[in-house]
Nucleic acid binder design. Structure first.
Length: 478
DNA sequence: ATGTGC
């Protein structure tokens, strides 16, 4: 990606955890970063602030080019970036604003068990056998061919439930009821299909994981009760996405848009911001393929959750119950008020989570009073969080998605060996299963920001409220 | 993130 452009931008701390970059040059709106100077990555090593500036030049962008407290350098857009464009006023959609792992997200399940009564080693041994992971193929489901894959692309978690992998209640506990509308399998290339056939129900690698966790601390009694969370309670968190299929779709459509941009008279400061009007053949094609990948990612998490639940039933006699499933890499068409008018916007969230406030009509009745659960996976061996949306929030009802990297994978692998890290985790009482030594080292906690500080910043910025802090008991990694 | 990389 090269060396970051030396940024010479004015950054104004206008409120605690709210830095503003006033529009200058080609910027159509200001940049707003919900963080402190301490959490902001060093511009000499990380290009994310420049990327916030670049995104502000996109046609049709409204309000501001936003970034969350876990912001860091990504492909075109920063990871932690939120940007909305006005569909009826030439607004664009950009695959770089979603990222390569389309619909990467998190699912949290609860067990009716206290950590003191959990036979963790036996559960971990069961999960070790039941959870396909690592690069390449190997998955819970074997699909018969393109026709069946298309049902996954159109149906998401709903199709998995129809096939007996879960129950109807699960769908109420998924963003969009488990299936994103508008999927168009016709826009998914043969190569993406080929990669997707053998990966439905697989974790992948990198920062993806399945963790057995316990509630360490309840921070909002009322919301925690509504979410079914109590101190000491055992939970399972699954963090994964759309695997090779989503990656291939992003690759394909970046190329298509890179070629098409000129015809629409669009110029961007970075080719990685390749984009096209939402209402153009290329824009619609991408959004159709993206929705297909989103549904693939949801079916993926549904199948892994069922596999984990089967293990819990065998070992403890209890199945798991779905608290919620969120995506943190997606562009969605949503209505928001801009300058006193309801507008149709294309909201890109890349490494950012939708966080609907209490009372929002899109929430299921059981969650409507408390607000949308927001699931924040911490880095390996550190805490994770459950947050909730708040009235008044900001950035089109969005908040952070995780700790956010501060070291590259290469830097992290240089700093520690996988073996040493495994020993350290086991010394902390965290069971580790099936991780490659290299993969483990790349995910060392010191390669990430402090998740407690990120959550404090998101709360301090008024984007969300913390509901519970979770700590890991065991981790399954690719 | 990714059948991991100029």
């Amino acid at each position: 990606m090269g060396i970051p452009k030396a940024v010479d931008v004015e950054v104004v701390e206008e409120a605690p955890f709210r830095l503003r970059v006033p529009a200058q040059g080609d910027m159509r709106v200001d940049g707003v970063v919900f963080t402190s100077h301490e959490l902001l990555p060093d511009p000499a090593e990380d290009g994310s602030l420049q990327q916030v500036v670049n995104v502000a030049t996109l046609p049709g962008i409204v309000e501001a080019s936003y970034a969350m407290p876990d912001v860091h350098w990504g492909y075109g857009f920063p990871i932690g970036g939120v940007a909305a464009t006005d569909v009826e006023r030439g607004g664009v959609v950009s695959p770089g604003g979603v990222g390569f792992d389309i619909s990467c997200g998190v699912r949290l399940l609860t067990a009716d068990l206290d950590r003191s009564e959990l036979p963790i080693e036996r559960v971990m041994d069961g999960l070790d056998r039941a959870v396909p992971r690592g690069a390449g193929s190997g998955a819970v489901w074997q699909l018969s061919g393109r026709a069946e894959l298309e049902r996954v692309l159109l149906g998401g978690s709903r199709y998995a439930v129809e096939r007996g992998h879960g129950e109807d209640r699960d769908l109420e506990r998924c963003e969009d009821g488990g299936v994103l509308a508008g999927a168009d399998p016709g826009q998914v290339s043969a190569r993406a299909v080929e990669r997707g056939l053998e990966q439905v129900g697989s974790l992948g690698s990198g920062n993806h994981f399945l963790e057995v966790q316990a509630v360490d601390e309840v921070l909002d009694d009322v919301a925690a009760a509504a979410f079914g969370l109590a101190p000491g309670q055992v939970c399972v968190m699954i963090h994964t996405g759309s695997r090779g299929l989503g990656h291939q779709i992003c690759t394909d459509h970046v190329r298509i848009m890179d070629r098409a941009m000129r015809a629409y008279g669009i110029s961007v400061p970075d080719r990685q911001l390749a984009c096209a009007p939402v209402e153009s053949p290329e824009g619609r094609a991408y959004l159709g393929a993206m929705a297909a990948a989103a549904n693939y990612g949801r079916a993926n998490r549904q199948l892994l959750a069922e596999a984990a639940s089967d293990v819990f039933e065998r070992v403890t006699g209890q199945r798991l119950s779905l608290l919620y499933d969120v995506s943190h890499n997606l562009a969605k068409i949503e209505e928001h008020e801009i300058g006193g008018e309801r507008r149709r916007l294309c909201v890109h969230r890349k490494g950012a989570t939708r966080a609907l406030p209490p009372g929002h009509p899109d929430l299921p009745p059981a969650l409507r009073d408390a607000g949308q659960p927001v699931l924040i996976p911490g880095s390996m061996g550190t805490a994770s969080y459950v947050l909730r949306g708040v009235v008044g929030g900001g950035a089109f009802h969005s908040t952070c998605h995780g700790a956010g990297r501060v070291q590259s994978r290469k830097q992290a692998a240089r700093a520690i060996t996988g073996g040493a890290l495994r020993k350290r985790l086991e010394g902390q009482g965290i069971a580790v299963r099936g991780a490659s030594a290299r993969g483990l080292a790349e995910e060392a906690p010191e390669a990430y920001k402090d998740v407690d500080a990120v959550v404090a910043a998101a709360e301090g910025a008024g984007l969300c409220r913390a509901v519970a802090r979770l700590v890991p008991l065991g981790v399954v990694k690719g």
